Structures are given as structure tokens and as C-alpha cells.
Computed example of a mutant assay.
Amino acid sequence: MATVQNSVEAKGIVVALKGNAWLVDPDGSRRLLKVGDEVQEGQRVVTENGAELELSLPNGQQVSVASARELLIDATLLGTAPLDATEAALKDLNSGASDLAQALAAGGDLLTELDPTAAGLTGGEASDSHGFVRVLRIVEAVDPLSIGRGPDDVTNDLNLYVGTATGLAEGEVPPVPGITLVPTITLDANITANDIINQAEAGQNIPITGVVAGDAKVGDTVTLTVNGNTFTGLVQADKSFSIEVPGADLVADPDKTIQASVSTTDAAGNTASASDTEGYQVDTAPQYPRSRWMPTSQQTTSSTKPKQTKTSPSPASSQAMPRSVTPSP
């Protein structure tokens, strides 16, 4: 059976776009579409809620994709599907007319003289007919899933109807299969100047800071868990966050470790989360200032010792020795 296939790579072109739409590759990666972008076979076009997109096909037809829809770009849509050349050849359908005339002239029974028609469970032979049946188009117009077009575009309309995923509310964007979000979160290394909670800081609120990256975005919620309690904050414009935690909870935390997590969701409903931990120390012993002055006795060093002076008693200060006096006779 001979086949004919277009060897030129066919592409569709985005000619109109209102709102956001994504092009999803077969490997699951995606990127935002803009007017002038090309779409190829195997890719998918996904529109967000409220978006409208129009593609120009290689055959000149226009295809509209409405809000919250997903369209697979395949060979049939692009017009590159292989065709059987023999299917376009028409057999001489007048050949049976002469058989009919001969049967009538001979007075024969048409039911026995002619081939049976394609009726019943087994059908008839394909001697005077084509051996294939082709369904050219099936159009199922189910309001409101039909794509509205202006009156001037009706003749060029492809009559494309794309349904929404089950279980979704009206206008809700269905998640895109195969897309994986990868957010990250990192806590700063020190929660105080020396990463140690002292006695004064134990009575204060300590700001716990860090950054997010990857698919995490501005406005996502960051959750901290300390001493069994949770504290939340939002990601700022520079992808950083700062959440105050009471010093008393930091001191009372059993393992002196902060748990942090961030959760993110994209416009198509895909969700993901990331987490990080950071340890710290606690030293709430009283801190006494060291005096600048020390007692004189403690300022003596081994190299400077007081000199010892031995003093001998002077003769004048010596005690007179008693003398024995004998009276004269």
C-alpha cells in the first residue's frame, strides 16, 4: 500500500494571545507563549483561566483555544499524517450497471444474479465497492464547550472542541500532567550575631531570616516550627523572608533546631514544597562585666617581687644586759 507523507516539518504559529498560555514539551518542561512563537508536533498548548489563544496552521486555517483548555499538537492537526494514495482512487462505479441490464434482459432474479450488498453481520464482498470506510470528521457540539467564532470565520473554523478535566470548578485551570515544580528554601546560618541565644535575647523576639529560590515565588507562605509552635510569613519581592520567633520558644526548643518549609502552586494547579533546618545554641548564664581595676596585691607578677630587707637592731636601741653588783664591805 503506497503512502505519501509530507517531509517538510510543519509548524503552527501563535497569531493572537490574550492572557497567559504555556507550551509544554513531551519531557514536561514548559515555557510561556507569546505572539510569533511556533508550536510543533508532540507539544501541548495550555491556557490559563481567562486567556484566549489563536494558532495559524500550515494549511492556512485558524484554531482558537479558549480559557482553561489544553490542546495537543499532533500530525492530524498540522496536516502531516501519512495518507494512503490508493484511498483517493475511485473505482468505476458504473461497471455494475451493465450487469444489472443483462440480468433484467435475461429475466433473471436480481437477488441471485448480483453480488449481495453490505448488509447483515458479515456484509457483502468488495467486488464493486471500496474496501475501506473513512470517517472524515466527528463534530460534537456540546454547549458551552464549543469555541465561539465570529460569523466571518465560520467557513475557516476547524470546529475544535476541547473539554475540561472532571472534578474541576467552572473556570478552574486543570493541572498539567508531567510538570514538576522544584522550589527551594535556605535559612540563614546565624539567628543572632554569634548564633547563641543569651539571657537578654531569651526575652526578645528573634527575627529568623532566609531566602527561597527555584519555582518558589513572591507571596508564597513560609512556615517555621520551633518548640512545637508554628510561625508564618510571606516571601518578599527579593525572594527573602523574615519571621519573628519569641526567644523563650527558641530557648525551650528540645533539639535547638528550626524547621522551615515553603509551599508553592502555579496557575495550572501544580503544587510542591521544600524544607530546610538550622541549629543554634543557648547560653542564658548571667554575664558580669570584667573590672578594669584589680587589687594591688593581685597586680604583682612573678617578675616583680617585693624586696625583703633585714634590719639589725642598733646598739642604742638594744636592751641593756643586767650586770651583777656586789656591795663593798
Rank of each mutant, 00 (worst) to 15 (best):
L100F: 07
G131W: 10
L234Q: 09
L55P: 00
A10M: 04
V262K: 00
E172S: 10
Q281N: 10
Q199T: 04
T122Y: 08
D27H: 04
S29Q: 14
D188L: 03
P82V: 04
D249L: 09
Q319N: 09
I258S: 03
G19H: 02
W293E: 09
E172H: 13
M321L: 13
G108H: 08
S312R: 15
E52P: 07
T117K: 11
G28E: 05
F132W: 08
G203R: 06
S67T: 02
G19D: 06
P306L: 09
G19A: 02
Q298P: 03
F241P: 03
L100A: 11
T301Q: 11
Q5G: 07
L72G: 10
M321D: 15
K11T: 11
F231D: 03
S64L: 12
G247T: 01
Q62F: 12
P82C: 05
D266E: 00
I258V: 05
T311A: 11
G219V: 00
T3F: 06
K217Q: 07
T112W: 03
V251E: 03
P183R: 01
S273P: 05
L160A: 12
T47H: 15
S56P: 13
S242W: 06
G96Q: 11
G178K: 05
Q61Y: 02
G148C: 11
A21V: 00
T117C: 10
D220L: 01
L72F: 13
G214R: 00
E170V: 15
L181T: 06
N227H: 01
A10F: 01
A118P: 04
L53M: 00
L90Y: 13
A105I: 11
R30T: 15
D74C: 14
G203A: 07
K34T: 07
A189M: 01
A88S: 15
V154E: 11
L250R: 01
S240A: 09
V45P: 02
L110E: 04
E244F: 15
T277Y: 02
V245A: 00
L121D: 15
A272S: 14
D157V: 08
Q319Y: 05
A272M: 07
T257R: 11
L77S: 03
A252D: 00
P116L: 08
D153G: 05
E87G: 13
L114F: 09
P175M: 01
K310Q: 09
D283H: 01
G171E: 12
S7H: 15
K217R: 15
T257L: 11
V135S: 15
T180D: 03
N198P: 00
D220E: 02
D143M: 06
S312M: 13
A274S: 12
Q102M: 11
I208A: 01
D128P: 01
S146R: 05
G124P: 00
A200G: 12
N94S: 10
A272P: 07
I73N: 05
T166N: 14
Q259N: 14
T186V: 06
V8R: 07
V212F: 03
T223G: 05
V182S: 14
D283T: 02
P26F: 01
L224P: 03
V8I: 07
L136R: 15
Q40D: 05
R31I: 11
L168T: 14
T221D: 05
Q298K: 06
R44Y: 13
N59E: 02
G167T: 05
L83G: 05
G131N: 13
D253H: 02
S312W: 11
G12T: 00
D74Q: 13
